[in-house]
């Protein structure tokens, strides 16, 4: 039994590594095949003033003239030694460029995720408890409307109202100039972007919780529990919630990279210095080395969280595991 367990862990690690490698090949090829000139990222507009010979020389120097495979092998070799090359645009080590910004994204996305995680569960529970009563209907209405508002427009709206008209909150950046360490200042800058991140996703997940619970509420065991004298609320918390939790956890595991990595629109509108804007710039201006690392960061997280979702639902709900052992393949979310 123990042997089987270790085998499974090794199998999962192998699967994970394989996927990450394939992903890196894919991103590498895609970014190289896309037309566009990485020299622009490096030299900016000056490229146009360079002679053809100079351009060729620059390409040679950056290692862009070698065959694709050689370039990839070289990159991989460096990557295993922790050397991811330099960013063409920022002219420094890619790791430094990312290290300077990743904290901001993690704060924004991480806080957003936590808020969504808690609020979606509470809202879903509340709505399921008050199914089809006034409160549920009103929340559903409002929720549907918020889920229809595109993130970027919500961000613009908040900017217009709270930063331009009322002038209550700052509209751009992660901190005021010269106040980098000031927590309160950072918190104030975080309010608007965080609101957009949370409102943009909240209802989708809350609605899923609600629907899942409504299915659960219609099961026979609820009838039994009620007959034994438990109140509706007790049944909902002790039994239905438990039934809905595995699918909620695996759903949120899939949601984690989605929310963390999906902040680029918000970051762009609020000029918030994070990974999202970096990804956008690097994809647009062919900053290959930077693009590779940013894509791998988000991609790895997606792969990891998807596998985590499978493992979580297998842990909590053994039925899923049996299903996957009997040849059902991947675990399906509900």
């Amino acid at each position: 039994m123990r042997k089987l367990y270790i085998g499974r862990i090794l199998y999962n690690i192998g699967k994970f590594a394989l996927r990450v490698i394939v992903l890196s090949v894919l991103v590498f090829t895609i970014s190289r095949l896309a037309p566009g000139d990485p020299l622009y990222a490096y030299y900016g507009e000056r490229v146009e003033k360079m002679s053809v010979a100079q351009q060729e020389q620059a390409r040679e120097r950056l290692g862009l003239r070698k065959p694709l495979f050689t370039q990839y092998a070289r990159w991989l070799q460096g990557a295993f030694h922790g050397d991811f090359g330099i960013s063409y645009q920022y002219k420094t080590d890619v790791k430094e460029v990312i290290a300077a910004r990743i904290g901001n994204t993690l704060i924004l996305g991480g806080l957003g995720f936590l808020l969504i995680f808690v609020l979606a569960l509470l809202l879903g529970l509340f709505c399921a408890w008050r199914e089809d009563r006034a409160a549920d209907r009103i929340i559903c209405r409002i929720g549907t409307v918020t889920s229809c508002v595109p993130e970027f427009w919500l961000a613009l709206l908040l900017l217009l109202v709270f930063a331009v008209w009322l002038d209550w909150l700052p509209g751009s950046g992660a901190y005021s100039i010269g106040k980098e360490g000031d927590v309160a200042d950072r918190a104030v800058h975080l309010v608007l972007p965080l609101t957009v991140v949370v409102l943009g996703h909240l209802w989708y997940y809350a609605f899923q919780v609600r629907n899942r619970l409504l299915e659960e509420v219609r099961a026979d065991y609820v009838l039994l529990a009620r007959m034994k004298g438990l109140s509706g609320k007790q049944v909902l918390y002790r039994h239905c919630l438990r039934g809905a939790l595995p699918s909620y956890l695996s759903m949120m595991a899939v949601a984690l990279p989605h929310i963390l990595g999906g902040t680029y629109v918000v970051e762009t509108v609020f000029s918030y210095p994070g990974i999202g804007t970096l990804a956008y710039e690097s994809a647009r201006y062919q900053d290959y080395n930077l693009l590779m690392v940013v894509s791998l960061l988000t991609g790895t997280m997606v792969i990891f969280c998807n596998m985590l979702a499978g493992i979580i639902s297998g842990r909590i709900d053994p039925r899923m595991r049996i299903h996957s052992l009997t040849g059902g393949g991947e675990v399906r979310g509900c």
Binding site: R19, A279, A283, G299, V302
Partner: peptide
């Protein structure tokens, strides 16, 4: 799943090109 893990932004920029 691999398709899902490639950043959507990169894919869009590439396809558009």
């Amino acid at each position: 799943e691999l398709f899902l893990s490639v950043p959507g932004l990169l894919l869009t920029v590439f396809l558009q090109a």
